[in-house]
């Protein structure tokens, strides 16, 4: 079965604050979300790829291109990161 691609909630933006990757809520999410997300550089790359509409496989390929990581590990970590973002409501 083909899984649908993750949809990033457009009410969240990624910003670099003092060298730290921070995902912040905007609009009405400001009231409901109650905080922010702190992402390391690899998680931020995944967020940016998803924001650009890339698929899970394309996002994993971007990780492989930038980092010393195997395609299998990259794919598994992209999926785990998407699950984490989904838990927080950043991915629908």
């Amino acid at each position: 079965m083909q899984m649908s691609e993750p949809q990033l909630n457009k009410d969240f933006v990624l910003r670099k604050v003092c060298g730290v990757n921070v995902v912040l809520p905007t609009g009405l999410q400001v009231k409901d979300f109650g905080g922010a997300l702190n992402l390391n550089d690899t998680a931020a790359l995944i967020f940016e790829q998803l924001q650009a509409g890339k698929t899970v496989e394309e996002t994993a390929a971007a990780l492989v291109a930038a980092y010393d990581v195997t395609p299998e590990k990259a794919l598994a970590d992209v999926q785990k990161t998407i699950d984490s973002l989904r838990e927080t409501g950043v991915v629908d």
């Binding site: 109650g34 905080g35 922010a36 997300l37 702190n38 992402l39 390391n40 550089d41 690899t42 998680a43 995944i46 990780l63 291109a65 930038a66 980092y67 010393d68 990581v69 590990k73 970590d77 992209v78 785990k80 990161t81 984490s84 973002l85 927080t88």
Partner: peptide, 17 residues
């Protein structure tokens, strides 16, 4: 060949306030 960066597992941490 471009040298790749050292890989760190992605982490997502929620800071509540």
């Amino acid at each position: 060949k471009t040298e790749k960066k050292t890989y760190e597992e992605p982490t997502v941490q929620k800071v509540e306030f």
